[in-house]
């Protein structure tokens, strides 16, 4: 059996709860960060039509 095949056989079929939790938290941070940046920029951009 090749070493790469042996490695592949050790890969489990489920992700751990820790992995799932960190992935979800990271996704939330990314979404909130983008939301903050977009709203702040949109407020500044509005000045073009209100000033």
């Amino acid at each position: 059996m090749s070493s790469s095949q042996h490695f592949l056989d050790t890969v489990t079929d489920e992700v751990t709860q820790t992995y799932r939790t960190i992935a979800v938290i990271l996704a939330l941070i990314v979404i909130m960060g983008l939301g903050y940046g977009l709203v702040d920029t949109a407020i500044k951009a509005a000045a073009l039509f209100t000033e």
């Binding site: 500044k44 951009a45 509005a46 000045a47 073009l48 039509f49 209100t50």
Partner: peptide, 10 residues
């Protein structure tokens, strides 16, 4: 100047 900054934002 504020409106120009808004243009940069857009």
């Amino acid at each position: 100047a504020a409106a120009a900054a808004g243009f940069v934002g857009i």
